[in-house]
């Protein structure tokens, strides 16, 4: 699903980590470790096609990307936001599917509340509903546990587990560990060339 060949991300002409070669297969959850500033976020943004300064190469199938930014419009309610994400994908999402997804993340009562009035954690839950509605098999998640309460973390782990069971793959950067069995990759700092 995802193949990295000697991939090293750069920022301002500086290489962030030692070249990385990896393969992610269906049914796999890969947790990206590394200290602050080691380039985890930049790597995910590179794979998502947002960051374009890198060396090496990679190949991936259609993906879903969830960055630090929540990507919900504060003026729109969850239903409107989720409909739009479907349209972005070129699909129409049925109202039933929307309700099921919102119920799964315990946000159904807020379906018509503008996202701007919700807490960080509640908005995070709405984004999880977006993942559920997406048809993409490969997920790039950047710090998915951020701002989630205990119960939200349970839901998150549950969603990731069932995504993997269904033959999907997750590639995520995280400091805290997930409950799902994950293969860990550590971004090594670059050793200075002689």
């Amino acid at each position: 699903m995802l193949t990295l060949v000697e991939l090293a991300c750069k920022r301002d002409e500086r290489t962030l980590f030692a070249p990385l070669s990896e393969t992610v297969t269906p049914g796999e959850c890969v947790a990206l470790a590394g200290s602050n500033g080691s380039g985890k976020t930049t790597l995910l943004r590179t794979l998502a096609g947002i960051h374009s300064q890198f060396e090496g190469s990679f190949q991936c199938e259609p993906f879903l990307y969830q960055g630090h930014r929540i990507a919900l419009d504060e003026l729109l309610n969850p239903l409107e936001n989720l409909h739009w994400f479907g349209a972005l994908d070129g699909r129409t999402v049925s109202d039933d599917a929307l309700r099921d997804a919102l119920a799964r993340v315990d946000m159904l009562p807020y379906a018509l509340t503008p996202c701007g009035r919700m807490s960080q954690g509640q908005q995070r839950r709405i984004t999880m509903a977006r993942w559920l509605l997406s048809a993409r098999k490969l997920w790039f998640l950047d710090e998915p546990l951020t701002a989630l309460d205990r119960q939200g973390q349970v839901v998150l782990n549950d969603i990731i587990a069932s995504h993997i069971d269904a033959g999907g793959a997750v590639f995520c950067a995280t400091h805290a560990s997930l409950d799902v069995a994950a293969r860990e990759i550590t971004l090594a700092p670059l050793t200075e060339a002689p």
Binding site: R45, A48, G49, I50, L64, Y65, G67, H68, R69, I70, A71, L72, D73, E74, F85, L88, D89, G90
Partner: peptide, 22 residues
């Protein structure tokens, strides 16, 4: 500006079939 700050724009660039259209 709003879409840049809240992350919608990065979703358009990386997720949309045709970012250009949006």
């Amino acid at each position: 500006r709003r879409d840049y700050d809240n992350g919608v724009l990065e979703q358009v660039v990386c997720g949309a079939d045709v970012p250009f259209l949006v």
